[in-house]
Amino acid sequence: MKMTAEILIGFVAIEHIYILWLEMFAWTTQGRKTFKSFPPDLFEKTKSLAANQGLYNGFLAAGLIWSLLIQDAAWSVNVAYFFLGCVIVAGVFGALTAQRSIFFVQALPAIIALLALLLA
């Protein structure tokens, strides 16, 4: 079960690296295709805001990757708990305030990874 938890944590980290790329480097191109419900003129106006959000997603990914590299088992699990918790809170908040699908894309995979980690 430990390996499953680590794979799921890795998946959540990769997902946040993708979000970093989307929000920091592809907001005005791929962002338009991803967020079809946003008005087209919004993307250029919010480019710097999206980049800031992308940076935070990069920090989440870095923390999750760090948790996988820590040799001490207790520290590794605690760091993973913290960063998965951050992803869950961000995903729930985003679902409540921005777009409901954020829960399924961001929070749910982190919840599943956290449950796997708790069972490991």
Rank of each mutant, 00 (worst) to 15 (best):
M1Q: 10
T4I: 14
A5M: 07
E6D: 15
E6W: 13
I7N: 09
L8C: 12
I9P: 00
G10M: 07
A13L: 05
H16A: 03
I17E: 03
I19T: 07
L20C: 11
W21Y: 15
E23Y: 07
F25Q: 02
A26Y: 06
T28F: 03
T28I: 08
T29N: 14
T29Y: 07
T29I: 12
T29G: 08
G31N: 03
G31F: 00
G31M: 01
G31P: 01
G31I: 02
R32I: 07
K33E: 14
F35S: 00
F35L: 13
F38Q: 12
P39I: 08
P40D: 03
P40T: 06
D41F: 05
D41C: 01
D41I: 05
L42M: 14
F43I: 02
T46S: 13
T46Q: 10
K47N: 07
S48I: 07
S48A: 12
A50I: 01
A50L: 02
Q53I: 11
Q53Y: 07
Q53W: 13
G54V: 00
G54Y: 01
G54I: 01
Y56V: 08
N57V: 03
L60P: 00
L60V: 06
L60C: 08
G63M: 07
G63C: 08
I65H: 04
S67P: 06
S67M: 02
L68S: 04
L69R: 10
Q71L: 14
D72T: 11
D72Y: 04
A73Y: 11
A73M: 13
A73E: 15
A74Y: 10
A74P: 03
A74K: 14
W75C: 14
W75M: 15
W75T: 15
N78T: 09
V79W: 10
V79I: 14
A80L: 04
A80W: 00
Y81Q: 12
Y81K: 12
Y81D: 13
F82N: 09
F82D: 09
L84N: 04
L84E: 03
L84K: 03
G85F: 02
I88Y: 01
A90Y: 06
V92G: 09
G94R: 03
G94C: 03
A95F: 05
A95N: 04
A95K: 01
A95M: 03
T97W: 05
T97F: 05
T97Q: 10
A98T: 13
Q99N: 15
R100W: 11
R100A: 14
R100Y: 08
F103P: 02
F103L: 08
F104E: 10
F104D: 09
V105F: 10
V105Y: 09
I111S: 06
L115W: 12
L115I: 15
L118V: 15
L119P: 02
L119V: 12
L119F: 11
